[in-house]
Write a protein that binds this DNA or RNA. Structure first.
Lengths: 273, 273
DNA sequence: CGCTGCTGTTCACAATAGCTGAACGATGGT
DNA sequence: ACCATCGTTCAGCTATTGTGAACAGCAGCG
């Protein structure tokens, strides 16, 4: 593990919507580095376009990140397909849909389409992370990871409560995830925000791996009456995306390893290092 | 300059829409590194989320890049404002508008809105770079950089010709840029694509620095009849953005660089329309 | 107007992080 | 069942990077 690269990544992570601009001294203080070291990192990152120097000698995120992000989006197969299905969902229900992936044990919202009938959901924002245990998409994504990985995530990040309904114990989470895996979808019953429910379903690639999750978020009072129909709508939409990605089988999953050049040993066997 | 960080950035740059997936050996060959070195880079980048490991042990760009890109976009003041003006331009003319910044001597398209009357412009794509000397936005951006910098850029990248109209000599470029700077806008008269013209104007921040350029792209046969009106439309749109960013003065420019050490300051979001 | 407190930047030296090349283990193709 | 090729690991040497103090520029204040 290259320490210098790790530090550079740490530097990038400092830049947030709340503090989008950093100076050398601030970075040095935040990362417990000598000023000169922070300066090296910042200036090389800037010369590579990953940061940009402001006229005042401070630093902001650079446009190379936007470039790379665009190539990522353009080459992510499920995005375009999922977006089409999301548009149909919004057109049909007028509610808000989310598309999310699991990264580092958290949910990252990749796309969000808001319906005309929908209330503004402030918590979710494209490009934002949220804990996975409380949302529909999060539970879907967690449910299809090996249990040991889920345990590791929970040990690292805990199970913070957002509402009285949020799952806060690992036992409850285990039961819930099993259910989600068996039935093929997840509900969020006001677990992240009071008054807000959602249904989420998994998106699979051709190998059966769950690579993303799609959801429909609905105000509670409109959710319960239509729950059944909402559920099938989301499931079918997600299924349709998976099919277009080349997924036909039922449940290959990571159990019977038939993947190409799979290095599953690192994940399946035991905890490494 | 931290060599390791530079190499890491080089690795990221390898990932393109044409080749979005790389293996250790390929990277090693492309960068003339020993396999083990390439492996170090790839695996640490992956562990930081800047890359992701595919099940086959190969690598793709990681979602952290998307995250960082989003925070960049959200904290870039001119984007939201410019987007509104671009929508008005498209609504009024039905043509295609571009928003671009200068990065590394090249034009990077940040936003593109296509009008219903417009023909598909394949060359420009959000997130894509193009040489600066041939497009309207490029000439605007170059015109407001110190001449020595322009010379350095040309020496590094040359003046590749796209059409018979493309500027291919540094003398011609100097004259053109002077004109652009004086008149406050730039034309592209079929210099990047035969049959396509455009008008571009600069967007300035509160210090007068040109930070971006906006343009209207129009088929040649529709461009010349309406040139005057198109020009004023783009100029006024860009001017409006600059004003909302806090630009009042005339031409502070980079002569007498008053480097405001102002921190995030009061965001330029002065008034909402 | 010239202080003083901050910035970001530069430099030499010391030591540690990382580059190197070969050997490993596992995969897919023949 | 083989071989070719891939990603991964390891231990040693070299060069890169971390270090801390001194430098230069700007803002604000007296």
């Amino acid at each position: 593990m290259l320490q210098t690269v790790q530090r550079a990544a740490q530097v990038l992570r400092l830049f947030t919507p709340e503090q989008p601009e950093w100076g050398v001294t601030e970075v040095a203080a935040a990362l417990r580095l000598p000023k000169s070291g922070a300066h090296s990192l910042l200036s090389t990152l800037a010369s590579e376009g990953l940061l940009q120097r402001t006229p005042g000698g401070r630093y902001r995120l650079g446009w190379s990140l936007f470039e790379h992000s665009q190539t990522l989006l353009e080459t992510t197969d499920f995005l375009l397909i999922a977006r089409r299905m999301m548009e149909q969902l919004v057109a049909g229900w007028g509610e808000t849909t989310h598309l999310a992936v699991l990264i580092d044990g958290q949910v990252l919202y990749v796309e969000k389409l808001q319906g005309d009938r929908a209330l503004e959901i402030v918590l979710s924002r494209v490009g934002k992370r949220l804990p996975a245990h409380c949302s529909g998409v999060g539970k879907v994504l967690l449910a299809h990871r090996p249990w040991e990985e889920v345990v590791a995530i929970v040990e690292r990040q805990g199970l913070p409560a957002f509402t009285p309904n949020t799952i806060t114990t690992i036992d409850r989470l285990r039961v819930e995830l099993e259910e989600v895996r068996l039935q093929g979808f997840a509900y969020d019953q006001e677990e992240v925000m009071v008054g807000l429910c959602c249904v989420a379903a998994p998106i699979r690639d051709e190998s059966g791996q769950v690579i993303a999750a799609m959801s429909l978020s609905v105000p509670a009072y409109r959710f319960y009456p239509y729950r059944q129909r909402l559920t099938t709508a989301v499931i079918e939409a997600a299924r349709h995306v998976s099919t277009q990605l080349g997924y036909y089988g039922e449940e290959p999953e990571w159990t019977s390893v038939k993947r190409s050049r799979s290095r599953s040993s690192a994940r399946a066997t035991s905890v490494r290092t």
